[in-house]
């Protein structure tokens, strides 16, 4: 083991070349958020993953981001346990009614500026589970979504591309959403949130994979609030 570990120092890591930011996503993100207040977080983002009722396929792929091949940490991204430490909520699954409150509370516990990334087909609009009595349908029904990563499940490379777009974006001045106290309830947020465009088509056998793309969605929020207000 020692030999292998020391050998690792000499070997080149088997990492894939860093995926560039997903095309289009960054421009979208910037266009949507620039009018909000200017906070620059730099090349460092902490991610709190939330499973809001997914089939755990997305979780498998998200976990894979930590392995040597994708090596999430080289971009300055890392997963954290407490939402208090997080900047990004990476949410998967069609929000089940049973997880609705928990998702909202976690969102509320996260300090501003923060982003919500909807990851996977179900997270966008409920996916195959849309219409069930148990499912609220789409993350944006509960919290505002800033970035959407489709696919069932999206491959690690696709998730990584989305997250890299986000970090590129956060490294640029004038990126993040405002900071301010808020007291809304789940219902308020849901009302505030405009129905974002849905991904065309369901998830079929052949389009399920490789068709993953990153879409940016508007985050319609209340009136802009400046830092420190």
């Amino acid at each position: 083991m020692l030999v292998r570990i020391l050998g690792n120092l000499l070997r080149r890591p088997p990492v894939i070349p860093g995926p560039g930011p997903a095309p289009g996503a960054e421009a979208e993100l910037a266009a949507r958020l620039d009018r909000l207040s200017h906070v620059r977080l730099g090349r460092s983002l902490a991610i709190r993953q939330i499973d809001a009722g997914s089939c755990n396929g997305c979780e498998l792929e998200i976990s894979a981001l930590g392995n040597r091949k994708y090596d999430l940490e080289r971009f300055g991204l890392r997963f954290v346990t407490s939402p208090r430490h997080a900047d990004v909520l990476l949410v998967t699954g069609p929000v089940t009614h049973n997880m609705r409150e928990a998702l909202y509370r976690t969102w509320q516990a996260t300090p501003d500026p923060k982003w919500v990334v909807a990851c996977g087909a179900c997270a966008l609009d409920g996916g195959v589970f849309r219409g069930s009595y148990g499912v609220a349908g789409g993350i944006d029904q509960v919290v505002p979504v800033h970035l959407r990563i489709s696919g069932c499940p999206p491959s690690p490379a696709e998730i990584l591309a989305g997250l890299v777009a986000l970090i590129e974006h956060s490294a640029r001045p004038g990126s993040a959403v405002g900071v301010g106290p808020r007291e809304e309830s789940v219902a308020d947020v849901a009302q505030e949130t405009v129905e974002p465009p849905r991904v065309a088509g369901g998830v079929g056998i052949h389009e399920a994979h490789g068709a993953g793309q990153v879409l940016a969605a508007p985050a319609e929020r209340g009136p802009d609030r400046d830092l420190g207000s």
Partner: peptide, 16 residues
């Protein structure tokens, strides 16, 4: 960093 701060209920893993 400025001094933005807010009070929030404890975060108990999303439970109430």
């Amino acid at each position: 960093g400025g001094r933005a701060a807010r009070r929030a209920p404890p975060w108990a893993g999303g439970a109430e």
